[in-house]
Design a protein around this nucleic acid. Sequence first.
DNA 1: CGCCGAGTTGAACTGAATCAAGAAACGTGG
DNA 2: CCACGTTTCTTGATTCAGTTCAACTCGGCG
Lengths: 177, 177
Amino acid sequence: MEASVKQIIKAFGEILTSVTCNRGEVIHQSNARCNKIFIVQSGVLRSYYFREGKDITAHFAMDYSIIGAVDSLLRQTTSIYSIEALEKSKILVMEYSEMELFLDKNPRLERLARQVSQWLYLDLVERLEGMMFLSAEERYSHLLNRYPNITQKVNLGYIASYLGITQETLSRIRKSR
Amino acid sequence: MEASVKQIIKAFGEILTSVTCNRGEVIHQSNARCNKIFIVQSGVLRSYYFREGKDITAHFAMDYSIIGAVDSLLRQTTSIYSIEALEKSKILVMEYSEMELFLDKNPRLERLARQVSQWLYLDLVERLEGMMFLSAEERYSHLLNRYPNITQKVNLGYIASYLGITQETLSRIRKSR
DNA sequence: CGCCGAGTTGAACTGAATCAAGAAACGTGG
DNA sequence: CCACGTTTCTTGATTCAGTTCAACTCGGCG
């Protein structure tokens, strides 16, 4: 994934805006539309929403991964998600509408854009399979595999909700390693 | 979804082939590549794979929904999935490579193609959320909501594995309604 | 010092899995 | 059309991973 994101950065350079944001900064607030795609160059972002009063992390993004308010982007509605930086981060921002214009002008890039969305799809398939077949512990160890230093950057509760388990369970899992 | 699939059928008519298949017929066997997209006009298909010796249903498709061997399509590898008809079905088949050629010639259709893949993505998000937050019973009732007559067409075990529960649990859920 | 958010620990509870039998339904050949 | 075997579904008893709820610890920081 990282490789193709770097390709994206090169190819779409002229419609990308570079932004820095600080720990705790909310770059998109729920209940608004957000037709932007964020590419994380350094730092960590997460998207989250509330479900039955609980803060649920939908997604983490770090080193050259992509994050956005998917529902707003794909459905053109206001979003249930908020997106915030969990530490000082450097990100690139792309307006979805500008992307579409840009693709009209450069149809050769369509394929690259499609590749990225396919990657995101396969990613989701994996996550679904994780939820269906893996134990809490296995899911956690997969996550660590993917983001080895996530524990230094993201607090327990956020990771737990991402994995679909309680904070207590995650704490116990950590203890037992 | 149904609406946009019908649009697809209209727009891509010239590269679609109509096929009929019988109950039990396997239209794609795992371990082979399959760069075809199947659109179900009537009947029911399912894609499935084996995980730890168990038959897992990955997807159902009926009345104007789309099914394919996602891994083969998106990764260009051999597929873990098989696809079979669960009753006599009428389907339309599209070669992925032909689709790409066709899109090159008709770039206006790119957007429609993208819409479909977005729809599939959102679908998957919903399924993930179901797995994360809903009980076995709730997931089942959502499924019934979506495919009211699925019970007449698909046997218990296939539905159970799709929902990520055991056959026994699904049987008990049915009893209690 | 005392408060606050983050993480930990314990005990009781629960939804669903597992294992093990049976019952029903289904279809195939005599 | 019935008999038999196979597949599908049901039922019961037991177990277990993970939740819930409640209390407690720890490390900052005003």
